[in-house]
Design a protein around this nucleic acid. Structure first.
Lengths: 200, 200, 200, 200
DNA sequence: GATGAATGAGTATTCATTCAT
DNA sequence: GATGAATGAATACTCATTCAT
């Protein structure tokens, strides 16, 4: 990686961190360059605008997450576990969850939405492939797989991102998930253990 | 209604319209008072801040929608139709959908999210009551009703608000809805006609 | 004059002085408000933009100059003297000439040009009326009066504004002026005395 | 021409074109180097500053125009035709007239003025020589020739550059021109044909 | 109840120029 | 000859909020 690229990556990382912790709107260019210790001109040498920085930050995150999802897909896990693991992996970054309790604070909504939409678009095809595998193996039984996958993602996002969820939410989530995919009852109970694991 | 209250209501209506068509962030106090033909001091006589105006605007909307939902609940419709009608009734205001194609434009996200959350909170109890009625009548069969209702709302919001949905989305939505509530297969096919009706 | 109007007039005067002495481009809003001792918001309360301020400043100048020209026109002077006096009166403000020797400095060009054009448009009709009077009195003899007037103005502007002119320039100017209007030879020699007067 | 000189000439041409079409102020160094496909350092290897680039661009133009004027002067045309042809030849570049209607747009004023002044200074001596020839031949009759020439140039600039001129403007221009030089009445009517020719 | 003048911190963006490599 | 990363001062404009009248 050349000098210029390294610096840009550095800036991207700083911007990412700040956008996530303080929100996009609440992060000024001045904040970023102060943190990076560079001149304003330098920032604009690497980025055309604040908005474009956001796009690049999001692109970077998406890329990373998709990569992670891809390697799960290629792993030797059973299909249902694969699917659940991927869904779990695209959850918001821990910074978003913890620092300042910032997640879903109004200042984060815009970026969060942008990320979620673009992530869903990218992840749906991956999960569709996994689910089709499940159908072939007789574990699942359903049609219109991409649409069903999308709904699963939407449900999981909504439940696990926003609110403090209860055991009953989890029960319902498991039940619905099984029914969406046409899996046997209780065949996805393993989700409960995943959710109670540290990262959540 | 006294003079002062009338004026406040008038301002609230103007703010509501402007927030929805241009977005909260893109509407300045100056815009509002220009439209209302009043002085800035007058605005601040009625509202403490811009943010508080937003809260009041949202409160007003919620109230209206809950009222509409309540009267559906009291109507003599069959239970499944009631539920679906209420879900349909809390869809975003037509202004949001049509004007400038503004819905889900970044500038609207913040308000949209706020509304959705508060609306869901208010509507869930109503729908829960309806669903319990359905269970008693043997039409539905499920537990954890409030949680299930919330997921239905989330799914319907996501599908019908944001994207241009397809027939396959609808098929899946109907299937999932039936399974969430434990209704008989195809017992909720009537949804399809509702969706293809003009207002949707 | 109300409070607000007085303040605006004050700002207009300050802006005028600064634009003329330092040039429009070289005068920042910060300069103006520092000089006026007001907050930035106050400036923007009275003016929509820097550009619009320039327009108002120019409008104000034009108005003053046209007024002066009008009263010359209504005076009992002989026609040739009237015309020359008006032409002399629309010369650039003494500040422009003296302070920093700013006139025709690149930074002043833009404003100067704008003023000159608009002034010429306004003054041509006045002078045309005067010249027609002269034709009726048999002092002048020419057709296409407005076009001739405009050329006289252009010549006088060019000569007297920009360069240090010589006696020979004046001789030629007098000669041409007489010929443009069809006046008798040497009938406008009085111009020479005007030019050598203090204000030039 | 060596490699370095060729590159500099190339840059000069690009700068010339951009200054004229977009205006000096609206053309950034970045614009120029992007167009030229070189690095910023390279630009500053050839030019000391943006301002100095402008000077060189103007110098280049002047040189070309003076050369053209010189060859007209050496041609076997009758004196009045020579003079008019030279005046016509120093009109603004066609790019200035056509592209974006840019001429006299504020962004062009500065450069335009600079060019005009320097061009007049250079052209006056040439035309003076021609006019003196005319006087010797008895076609013209006047004194203070350089001053008269300058006024002719000023008039022609003003009329033909800025405004859409009318037939009456042309009539007046011809009349004045004849009188400035002391030529016989109607002896310069040929100007009318020149003006109605395509290039004007 | 109503006015509107005044505030001032905050923000993104531009651009000519330098200089180590 | 040529590069391009780095600079940083400069700038116009926004807007929610206050308060004396």
């Amino acid at each position: 990686m050349k000098k210029g690229e390294r610096r840009k990556q550095e800036l991207l990382d700083i911007a990412y961190r700040m956008f996530i912790t303080r929100g996009y709107e609440n992060t000024s260019i001045d904040d970023i360059i102060a943190e990076a210790g560079i001149a304003k001109g330098t920032y604009y040498y690497y980025f055309q605008s604040k908005e474009q920085t956001l796009e690049e930050v999001i692109g970077m995150m998406i890329e990373k997450e998709i990569e992670a999802a891809g390697s799960i897909l290629d792993s030797p896990l059973p299909v249902p576990q694969k699917i659940v693991a991927i869904i779990a992996s695209i959850r918001p970054a821990p910074e978003e969850q913890t620092i300042e309790g910032a997640l879903m604070q109004p200042e984060n909504i815009i970026m969060h939405q942008k990320i979620k939409r673009r992530l869903i678009e990218k992840v749906v095809p991956l999960l569709t492939k996994a689910a089709e595998e499940g159908v072939e193996q007789g574990i699942f039984s359903c049609d219109n797989i991409p649409e069903r996958i999308r709904m699963m993602l939407v449900i999981s996002n909504e439940i696990f991102d926003n609110y403090s969820f209860t055991d009953r939410d989890i029960d319902v989530f498991i039940d619905i998930t099984e029914k969406i995919l046409g899996a046997k009852s209780h065949s996805m109970d393993f989700i409960r253990q995943l959710i109670n694991a540290p990262s959540v």
